[in-house]
């Protein structure tokens, strides 16, 4: 991972911890392959809305509705890559 993407990953990890009330242990255990939407019980549709809005606030990006799909939320790694593509360009 590039240094920039590492920073994005740290931010996304912290947002998941804060918005889903994950323990530090669970947040630290998230890897690229950790499945998110449909696999993490805390992550229902209202939680996704709060998660994306908090990511917008912390990273300073705008996420459009038509960009939100199952692929983006499939895993921790896919969410980090999505946010990184917006934040680092």
């Amino acid at each position: 991972m590039s240094e920039g993407l590492d920073t994005v990953a740290a931010t996304v990890r912290a947002v998941l911890r804060d918005v889903l009330a994950l323990t530090d242990v669970r947040a630290a255990a998230l890897t690229d392959d950790t499945p998110l939407f449909g696999a993490m019980p805390e992550l229902d549709s209202m939680a996704v809305a709060g998660l994306l809005t908090e990511i917008e606030d912390r990273v300073g990006i705008v996420i459009e509705d038509d960009e939100v799909d199952g692929e983006m939320l499939e895993s921790f790694g896919s969410l980090v890559r999505f946010v990184g593509a917006k934040a680092l360009r």
């Binding site: 549709s45 209202m46 996704v48 809305a49 994306l52 809005t53 917008e56 705008v62 996420i63 509705d65 939100v68």
Partner: peptide, 12 residues
């Protein structure tokens, strides 16, 4: 408004 629309579209 963006947060409302997002919560709305995700909630169907």
């Amino acid at each position: 408004v963006r947060a409302l629309r997002r919560a709305s579209s995700l909630g169907g």
